[in-house]
Design a protein around this nucleic acid. Structure first.
Lengths: 249, 249
DNA sequence: ACCCTATTGTCTCATTTTGTTACATTAATA
DNA sequence: TATTAATGTAACAAAATGAGACAATAGGGT
């Protein structure tokens, strides 16, 4: 009924990646969380690294498998390497709930070090698809997540800190928004990430003086008020993989 | 004549750490580089992770083994996971130059992912000691390093970028300087890390208004000029391991 | 003892950046 | 056509930073 579980020969032992995939729906910052069949366990999407595969490529592959998106911002931000983070009991629960026979020495029950990535994607373009171990994958607001298994809550918190630190450097807005957007929406991205209100006029002035935006036609949204301009980012920033980032930083 | 090489049973396969250990001698930023016996190969100090050991603990242990220092600033900053970074030919050279018989399937010749750390230490307190594979370990100015093996030059460059980014956040000076120091020396640390000259008066005003320093007695160094005050940092910042940093960030 | 020199600590003023408020503009609606 | 609410920008205040001036002072030289 189910495919074979991942085989020992194909993957590096003890090594995994997990991804915190951020999206923005216009008002809230969300991340993708998957739920495993018949277990009530929620987890970040993650996977294993093939024996001859770059770790970055593994994370990129996993993202593509789950979202169908290929050219997106994806950056490694931390590696979780505590011995106690590994939970063979939980891994066994997940595998058995999927009908696998799990030998005691099965490699997935071993200790795992996880290299964590965060991705920024345009919420509208994504139709997440579950894999064979999970029965669904959904967007959840970062401040209202289900209880995540193992240390995944910690991984999310660290990702949020890093995202805040990189907010200006990495032109986060460009990666979370559609190509054209209003100043108000851009401000809401910033507010959602920082978790605080910003002053409208100061924000607008700041963004405009940074000289990163191009102004386009107005957006007539139907509201009984002056129509805002649409903007886009001036320079199409190359999508960064973590390795690019080292050089471009 | 030589001890046994590291054994497969004791360590996690495919996983290593490397440390960029920064020190400041009063005018230049330096790092510790080791040279392997009879090979002309220069490398960052690194090592392997024991099967039941936290990765942070492994890096800490390695630092202690090489410097004798125990309570120092040590923070993980990046994980290098490209397949092509591993160089079994070079590892073989190093092992054979030390008189080891190296079987073709020896685990150290496999692919390795390296978790990189940077450390900040008080240059004066350190008497580096070589391990059994290296014949010496020495301070080198960051802008005048010997040619490093594999991707270690890249690791250093990434460490420097991270150090610059964290210069203010992490109170770097506290970790690179002796307990009491003059404003001039503090400024030189900043200049060495940033790689640029700073304005004396602006720097002094900035540091004082940050309200982080305590002023002590003057330092009569023997120069024919007004004696500068000595300063120390107000709050003894707890030494951070990478795991602490997640929470304290 | 007295001047000279180099460095230090602080002050002042100019410039830039940011905070805050005000106000005219304008798209839809009644 | 007046009303309403969001928008773009200007204007002024406050804060931060840049740049220079200057008095204080620990030695050295005479």
């Amino acid at each position: 009924m189910l495919k074979q579980p991942p085989s020992f020969e194909e993957y590096l032992p003890h090594l995994a990646y997990d991804s915190v995939i951020f999206g923005f729906n216009g008002s809230e910052l969300k991340i993708l969380v998957l739920e495993y069949h018949n277990t009530g366990l929620f987890a970040l999407p993650g996977g294993f690294v093939k024996r001859y595969e770059d770790v970055d490529a593994a994370a990129k592959r996993g993202l593509w498998e789950r979202t169908g998106l290929d050219n997106i911002f994806l950056e490694q931000f931390y590696t979780f390497g505590n011995f106690s983070r590994s939970r063979p009991d939980i891994m066994r629960t997940i595998l058995e709930a999927n009908g696998f026979e799990v030998p005691d020495d099965y490699w997935i029950l071993d200790r795992f070090i996880s290299i964590a990535y965060y991705a920024l994607i345009n919420y509208d373009e994504v139709m997440p698809k579950p894999d064979e171990l999970s029965d669904n994958i959904n967007w959840y607001p970062v401040d209202n997540l289900p209880k995540l298994m193992m240390d995944h809550q910690l991984i999310v918190e660290k990702a949020l800190l890093i995202l805040r630190e990189n907010l200006d450097k990495k032109l986060v807005g460009m990666n979370l928004l559609p190509p054209k957007f209003t100043m108000q929406v851009l401000q809401k991205v910033y507010e959602a990430i920082l978790g605080e209100k910003l002053r409208r006029t100061t924000f607008q002035r700041k963004m405009l003086t940074l000289d990163l935006l191009v102004r386009h036609e107005k957006l007539f949204s139907g509201g009984a008020h002056k129509a805002p301009y649409l903007y886009s980012f001036k320079h199409k920033m190359a999508v960064q993989t973590a390795e690019d980032a080292i050089l471009s930083n």
